[in-house]
Design a protein around this nucleic acid. Structure first.
Length: 508
RNA sequence: GCCCCCAUCGUCUAAUGGUUAGGACAUCAGACUUUCAAUCUGACAACAAGAGUUCGAUUCUCUUUGGGGGUACCA
């Protein structure tokens, strides 16, 4: 429990009881960046024995969808990321921003009454015109014009039928906080303008809803993407006002997580196929593997090891050890880590998890292990030791065991397999057929088959193993790469093996 | 323009005011071998640049360069 010792020097102390939140917007498909953020929040909560809150920032009714919400929940379940408070564990009125308009309206009213916010009638065009006139760059932003509006001026705007937005009054002073990941950060006075917290139509914006919800639910540590870093000083200002109004205790600690990058120097976007969590799952990533890899994007487990379990991750994780610089998503390393986790799987577990993929690919008759036929189970159990070290993704299992389960007497060779059929393949097959005819079904075992074929082809005729077993492999599996040959022959059985050999021989 | 963040092998990262700058993935070579894997060996490969502080900086400071974000009545 000596968290303090290992954390970076100069980083803030964590609160006694850490309260974190994960608060996505339900737009689109769950992507890797989002899960990365969720994962670190979750790990920090579990490591410290704190609380994780899960809520929805669904204030954008045009883009938000129920479908997206369902997918996010499914994604969290799949990854094994659970939460203590929030959606499904309390009133929707607390965890869906779309149901909290009255709360935000009340807070806005209090801010306005206290003079911390003011009514702003300026349109974007008017502000831009003033900036032009004053010789300020077009991108200068809001100039504070409405700060000092008189009652008469306001009355006049109202008479014109104009409605005001609400802007927060930003003090003219430097804003500093000690970021959990980046250390002290200061925004100089005047580097951001009075900003809008409520639209003229009364809709509260993210700038208000997010801090208010955090305050109301007692969030004291905020871990979010670095894209939100520029909004942090603004929120700190708001927090001061909320504190004075008795709505918040104090600003939370902030930690701004590094981006997960895609191709080039761009944030991983929805366009990158590898950003789609479900696509990764479809390929056959298992949760342990993906979680392990994602954890490594901005953090390291140890100086010499980078494969670890969920439990080890939680045990070691401290957000103050997270690096500040963005990390590229490297699918090759992700696959490699996944492969290691597949190898670590209990064989039984490996089979159960592979079954849906086998079903999807038409290799077995059901998607649940328990619904498979006895023969399917029998073959798969025998095949496990042959394939578990040979696949990196569960989606690759089908290709490995397909030829073992099939009872077809001819498997069309794949293009690269066909190239294995060089001159002399016909002779090799003839000899193999002849010698295998003499093997009793009772003796149809890996060792016997190996020895018989080795004696006949390699020892007696001096054929190189590669040339001797290549054509046989193609006949048996239809592929260049397959599980070990003699083991496969044993599993498939003499009748089908003999048929496949004869059939291929006929066709070359 | 202004504000802010970031900078160690191709990629993810470790460490340190004094090291042959460590590991992993990838790549290449070799061993093993019934293909492919797995496993084992080895090779390749990094402190962005310049000042300053210091006996000594990859490490601390500043500047530059490069990359990224913000500058919304998006989140």
């Amino acid at each position: 429990m000596n968290i303090e010792n290992k954390a970076k020097a100069g980083r803030p102390e964590l609160p006694e009881h850490v309260r974190l939140r994960f608060c996505p917007s339900p737009t689109g498909i769950p992507h890797v960046g989002m899960i990365h953020t969720a994962l670190y929040n979750w790990a920090e909560a579990r490591h410290t024995g704190g609380t994780l809150i899960f809520r929805m920032e669904d204030t954008d009714s045009k883009r938000d969808t129920q479908e997206s919400l369902d997918m996010i929940i499914e994604a969290l379940h799949w990854m094994g990321i659970d939460w203590d408070e929030g959606i499904g564990k309390g009133p929707d009125e607390l965890y869906f921003q779309s149901k909290r308009a009255d709360v935000y309206a009340k807070v806005a009213r209090q801010l306005l009454d206290a003079g911390y916010a003011y009514e702003s009638y300026s349109t974007a065009e008017e502000t831009a015109a003033r900036n032009r006139a004053a010789g300020r760059p077009e991108t200068f932003g809001y100039d504070g014009y409405d700060r000092t509006l008189t009652e008469e001026q306001k009355a006049e705007f109202c008479a014109q039928g104009r409605k005001p937005a609400l802007r927060l009054r930003v003090p003219d002073e430097d804003i500093t906080w000690n970021d959990l990941i980046r250390g002290p950060i200061t925004f100089k006075a005047g580097s951001f303008p009075d900003y809008v917290i409520v639209r003229p139509n009364g809709e509260a914006l993210y700038t208000l809803t997010n801090p208010v919800d955090d305050a109301v639910t007692g969030v004291n540590v905020v871990l979010r993407g670095e894209d939100l870093l520029p909004s942090t000083p603004r929120q700190i200002v708001l927090y001061r006002y909320l504190a004075k109004l008795g709505i918040a205790k104090a600003a939370p600690l902030f930690g701004h997580l590094p981006y997960v990058m895609g191709e080039g120097n761009k944030k991983l976007s929805k366009r990158d196929p590898q950003s789609n969590l479900f696509l990764l799952r479809d390929q056959g990533f298992i949760r342990e593997g993906l979680l392990n890899y994602l954890a490594l994007l901005g953090w390291s487990f140890s100086a010499t090891e980078d494969v670890f379990s969920m439990e080890q991750f939680i045990e070691k994780f401290d957000v103050r050890d997270v690096k500040a610089n963005p990390a590229h998503f490297d699918i090759k390393k992700a696959i490699s880590i996944n492969a290691e986790h597949i190898r670590r799987l209990d064989p039984d577990d490996f089979l159960r998890r592979s079954t849906p993929y086998l079903f999807r690919d038409g290799v077995v008759s059901a998607k649940d292990w328990s619904d498979l036929t006895d023969r399917e189970k029998d073959v798969l159990v025998k095949a496990v030791p042959l394939v578990q070290t040979r696949v990196r993704l569960l989606g690759e299992v089908s290709g490995m065991v397909g030829s073992l389960l099939s009872t077809e007497t001819y498997l069309e060779p794949a293009p690269d397999a066909r190239k294995q059929l060089k001159a002399g393949s016909d002779e090799v097959l003839d000899k193999a057929i002849a010698v295998l005819e003499g093997v009793d079904e009772a003796d149809w075992k890996t060792d016997t088959l190996h020895q018989v074929l080795d004696d006949e082809l390699v020892e007696k005729d001096g054929i190189k193993p590669r040339l001797a077993f290549g054509p046989i492999r193609v006949a048996i599996s239809g592929r260049r790469v397959s599980p070990p040959l003699f083991e496969s022959m044993e599993i498939i059985g003499k009748p089908v093996v003999m048929a496949r050999l004869a059939e291929l021989r006929k066709r070359i």
